[in-house]
Amino acid sequence: MTMSPTPPIPVGVRLPLPSDNLPPAELVKMCRAALDMGYSSFWVGDHVVMPETSMSAYPHTSSGTPGFNAHTPWVDPLLQLTWLAAQLPEARFGTSIVIMTLRKPTLLAKQLATISWLTERPFSFGVGTGWLRDEYDAVGMPFEKRGTQARKDIAEIKQLITEGARTYIVRGEHDEPVEKRFIMKPTAPSPIEFLWGGFSPMAMRLIATSCDGWLPAKQSLEALEGHILRLKEACDEANRDFNDLRLVAKPGSGPDPESGPIDRDNLLGYAELGFHEAILEMPYEPAGIGDAISVLERVAARSWL
């Protein structure tokens, strides 16, 4: 069978983490090679600080242990994508995901509006609340009720990046609380879509009421089918048209995840479920650019080339 030169649905790339084996210049070369093969977009993950030991269980593996540790290098996702966008004007970018409730929403809004103004292209802002209590404690943000806080933060950020103004309660002349209107310019000239990363009942409600789409991690096609039914129910309860949501799948850890490799059959399965894009998770730290490009070639060859 002759395969199509393009995948059944677009396939993005979750980028490797920084390392001596893949320095910045080599990372850009890898991204250009990926674009030449037909990959559609580039995504980066997020952690601010990591504890050397933790009692928190990682939710995306059966063992509860992540595929990284305290010494795994993470760069700031928004800084990295702004830098890449300057060198890859034809590429799309997104986060998968930013732990938004580790940060103040006003500052996040300023960063997102700046990215939009500098890059002049749409941006996919994959967000979630994370799983690591220790990280919240370290940066001084509350871990409890973070889902409720995320809903408020999304509303605040959207208002700032679109309207450029918001009313805040501040201290008055005699330290009494007063309402004052603040301005934030520039606003975001290009669309910024909010994609929620979870699949709990709270996540489904949050997607239906506050987000533009869904970016679930490491779920099999069978599991996704059930989650989509629950998401549709949440949309019905919120009087939201499910078809307005953009769905992005992240099949699993690495090019051959336990939840199914990215290949033509799986991509067709995601398309049948209504997904608009899939993300290949690259190995966290490949041996070098040759190793990274080999992964990209292998997945593309069995999926569309």
Rank of each mutant, 00 (worst) to 15 (best):
L195F: 09
D134C: 12
G126A: 07
E272V: 11
M50Q: 07
R246P: 08
P73S: 00
S294Y: 04
S19L: 10
I262E: 04
L229H: 14
Y39R: 06
D263W: 09
P7G: 03
T187P: 09
T162K: 09
E225L: 01
I262T: 09
G12C: 03
D20F: 01
L215T: 07
A109T: 07
F42S: 07
G197L: 02
A57C: 08
Q159Y: 10
D291S: 13
F125A: 10
E258D: 13
C211W: 03
S4A: 10
G290I: 08
A278S: 12
K158E: 14
S54R: 02
I161C: 14
S63T: 12
F93E: 01
R151N: 15
V248Q: 00
D46A: 03
E176S: 08
W196L: 15
F275V: 10
M30Q: 06
S190H: 12
K232L: 11
R32W: 00
E179Y: 05
P189Y: 04
P89E: 05
K145S: 09
N239T: 14
Q219W: 00
L112C: 06
M204P: 02
P283K: 05
M204C: 10
L107S: 09
G274I: 06
A150C: 15
S54V: 00
P89Q: 06
P73C: 02
H276F: 10
D256S: 11
L247K: 09
V44R: 05
S294H: 09
G213L: 07
P77L: 03
A292K: 03
D291A: 14
K185P: 12
P7R: 05
M1Y: 11
D175H: 13
A70G: 06
S116T: 10
M202A: 15
R121Q: 04
S56K: 04
R181H: 15
P73K: 01
E233G: 07
T114A: 11
D263I: 04
Y270F: 10
S4D: 08
C211T: 09
F123M: 03
R246E: 12
I97G: 01
L15V: 05
G269Y: 04
A25W: 00
Q219P: 02
L224E: 02
E193M: 12
A25M: 04
Q149I: 14
S19G: 13
P66T: 03
E26K: 10
L268W: 00
T53P: 08
E222G: 11
E222T: 14
L132E: 11
Y168N: 15
G198S: 04
M184R: 12
P51Q: 03
I157N: 08
L229K: 14
L231G: 07
I169D: 07
W74P: 02
E225C: 13
L245K: 07
I169G: 09
E233N: 14
R121A: 08
A25D: 09
A165T: 15
M37V: 10
M100F: 06
A208T: 07
E90R: 06
L215S: 03
L102N: 07
A33F: 09
C31R: 00
F42T: 03
P66N: 02
P73F: 01
N266C: 05
R246W: 01
E237H: 04
F242T: 12
P122C: 09
L79N: 11
M282D: 02
Y284A: 15
D175A: 13
P73Y: 00
L84Q: 01
H276Y: 03
L280Y: 09
H71E: 10
D241Q: 14
I279Y: 00
G147T: 13
K180W: 15
I279F: 06
L305Y: 00
S124E: 12
L231P: 07
F123E: 02
P89T: 05
